[in-house]
Design a binder for these strands. Sequence first.
DNA 1: CCGTTTCCGATACGACTGTATCATAAAAAC
DNA 2: GTTTTTATGATACAGTCGTATCGGAAACGG
Lengths: 167, 167
Amino acid sequence: MRIIGTRGIEAATVRVVAAEAGVSAGAVQRCFASRAELLRFVLQHINVRFTARVAARMARQPDPADEAVGLRVVIDEMLPVDDERRLTSAATLALLAYSATEPQAAEVMRAAYTGAHTFFRRAFTEASAIGLYAVISGLQGPLIVGAITPEQAWSVVDAAIASAEKR
Amino acid sequence: MRIIGTRGIEAATVRVVAAEAGVSAGAVQRCFASRAELLRFVLQHINVRFTARVAARMARQPDPADEAVGLRVVIDEMLPVDDERRLTSAATLALLAYSATEPQAAEVMRAAYTGAHTFFRRAFTEASAIGLYAVISGLQGPLIVGAITPEQAWSVVDAAIASAEKR
DNA sequence: CCGTTTCCGATACGACTGTATCATAAAAAC
DNA sequence: GTTTTTATGATACAGTCGTATCGGAAACGG
């Protein structure tokens, strides 16, 4: 994930990953039968890592059941505003592009999308849930390349939340 | 663009591109000093091709000055609902991810974003323009991997347009 | 304590990468 | 018609790719 986020998916070779992990290439080969499997694992790992981060942050909130703050935690965790989140955003973008041409990875990605949609549907209608998630995803690109500022992104998000149809 | 959209950016090597173009690898080398330059050109080419397609379609409209239909033409051209647009969407996604780790490509991408934002700002406020474009961009991912249907995407877009702040 | 299984690092292999070089074919200039 | 560019295809090179193979270290079960 670190390699993909900082140097791109093309740099995520078996040898480079092994070196980053401080093991030999053979060890990586035993864990993953192929590079494609490794990349799929990274994709899945980013998802579980993301939900874990969200859950941890929500547990620290005064009222963990409050859906309004939960929503903001999820969004805040998705916007690439610091190095940590910028890295995972870049990696997610790379793996989404990868999924566009790799059916097996697309399957994992599709599951992640539907999972996110159902989460947002706890508080919003279907169209609003998909729309809200689309806004946040769609802000990652311009944020990463510096076309908009985090302040602009948050004002967009605020407007999107305000006009979303609650259920 | 065809190669990136169908087989991924990793398959876009000098030799493969040359073969697809029906020329030798040397010819590609003379046109582009490096592979990075070639990829940047593709990124820029997708942008000019996109605006040309939009302009052509708007010229065919009964009232080319109507901003409402213009908006829908732009959006329709961005959503990957057929093979042609799915290809450019996949290529755009790949090049966006590429831009996340390549500063020179990020510059091109940033210019494309600000161009799109100023276009949308002809009819909407800044926050709504950025938000609307984010929604459309953010729908490309779930559409490509099949997490949502084109009908769902359009209903989301309709809601986003309806709640966008016109200027 | 030894046999067995699991794991790891190293090496090997063929294929492919980006890029440099160079002879020749086509075109342009004069 | 000849000379000077320009464009092109072919080849060469060093490096990296993914993957397969294999000897020995570590962990484990008895």
